[in-house]
């Protein structure tokens, strides 16, 4: 342990050896009206030589150092890219030669041809289902649909929940009472039942289903955001903005919401993880995505009877659901750690 980081005492004549660059930089801006105070000030020098980190950059830095989150991010990106490029998106064709709707001759009892020792891709890496459809293409299609629903719901609930929470928290009074009672109403009805009823009405298409799911899962975020806004609106910078004559909307969008970004992003990630599971559960029960379209939950539901005979029909979609839910949760954890205010950056 060396004492190199110990600044020399002012007045000792060795200040120029100080490791703090500002102190011996003749070109640095000098404000020397109050000479003694400047040299002996307890205020830290504004170190203009160093790179400036905004709060966002500090958070990003911590996030990218979080190993679990980085592995999860890589996994999630891998799954997403795989799902999109393999069978293509809409009219755009993918690199996988088979599609998910054409039945064909079942080879080798539909067993997966994916091998690890030696690594081999084979004709049907995930095997084939009853009618001989390629199970890899089906699973990828299911992953696409599940991810689409999850991200759509994630974005829509975030917008809805943030708006409702912020309005309730900032305006208080009857606005808050009405909005929060509505929130309570949504919370007391079991989510799965509500989603099932709404999912039934959506007719099995993924876009109506996504909108229906968004309508039931914004409540948690709304409460979180309201809580944050309630504490932020008492902070002096908000009072200062009010005292200047700033309009309520500008205060909400410019001064309050940027400070709740941490909560919002973390909550949005976790919503995505739970929506993946909710969609799977609904599709499994038959209230979600319906054939001819498919989703991961629907695949499991369709082939649940073949679990004992052809377990891969269960394992592939099951593992992907597990993988996505886990990695999104880890991402959320990483984000929460990055936003954690316990790290003291100030002072």
């Amino acid at each position: 342990m060396s004492d190199n980081d110990k600044p020399e005492l002012p007045g000792s004549g060795r200040e120029h050896l100080s490791p703090i660059p500002e102190q011996h930089d003749p070109g640095a801006p000098q404000h020397r009206e109050f000479v003694t105070t400047d040299e002996l000030s307890v205020e830290k020098q504004i170190d203009l030589s160093q790179k400036s980190y905004s709060q966002g950059e500090l958070i990003r830095r911590r996030f990218f150092r979080h190993k679990g989150a980085m592995i999860s991010l890589a996994f999630l990106l891998f799954i997403t890219i795989m799902a999109i490029t393999s069978i293509g998106w809409g009219p755009i064709p993918g690199w996988w030669p088979k599609n998910y709707w054409e039945a064909s001759f079942v080879e080798n009892g539909g067993r997966p041809s994916l091998g690890f020792f030696p690594p081999a891709w084979g004709e049907q890496p995930f095997g084939q289902e009853d009618a001989g459809k390629d199970y890899f293409a089906l699973t990828m299609r299911g992953t696409q649909r599940s991810l689409t629903i999850a991200f759509t719901v994630g974005i829509l609930t975030t917008i809805l929940g943030t708006a409702i929470g912020a309005i309730a928290g900032y305006f208080r009074g009857w606005v808050e009472s009405v909005l929060m009672r509505v929130t309570d109403l949504f919370i007391v009805i079991p989510l799965l039942v509500l989603a099932a009823v709404l999912g039934q009405r959506s007719g099995g298409g993924i876009w109506p289903l996504a909108i229906m799911l968004s309508l039931v899962s914004w409540t948690g975020l709304a409460r979180l955001v309201r809580g944050e806004v309630l504490s932020l609106r008492e902070r002096e910078f908000v009072t200062a903005a009010e005292a200047v004559g700033t309009s309520p909307w500008r205060i909400i969008f410019k001064h309050i919401l940027p400070n709740t970004m941490g909560t919002i992003i973390v909550s949005a990630t976790l919503t995505i993880a739970s929506v993946i599971l909710l969609e799977s559960a609904l599709s499994f029960l038959g209230f979600g995505v319906r054939p001819p379209d498919t989703s991961l939950g629907l695949l499991i539901s369709t082939y649940q009877n073949s679990f004992t005979v052809r377990p891969w029909l269960f394992w592939w979609p099951g593992l992907i659901i597990l993988g996505i839910a886990l990695s999104v949760n880890f991402l959320g954890d990483g984000l929460r750690d990055a936003f954690d205010p316990r790290q003291s950056r100030s002072e």
Partner: peptide, 30 residues
């Protein structure tokens, strides 16, 4: 026509705004 200074230096500036924007905010509002 009125300015205000509060007690707590940690709470009286919006942590998400750069210092320049903090200072120019009243001009933007008006």
């Amino acid at each position: 026509r009125i300015g205000v200074i509060f007690q707590d230096p940690a709470a009286s500036l919006n942590p998400r705004l750069p210092i320049g924007e903090c200072i120019s905010e009243p001009m933007v509002v008006h």
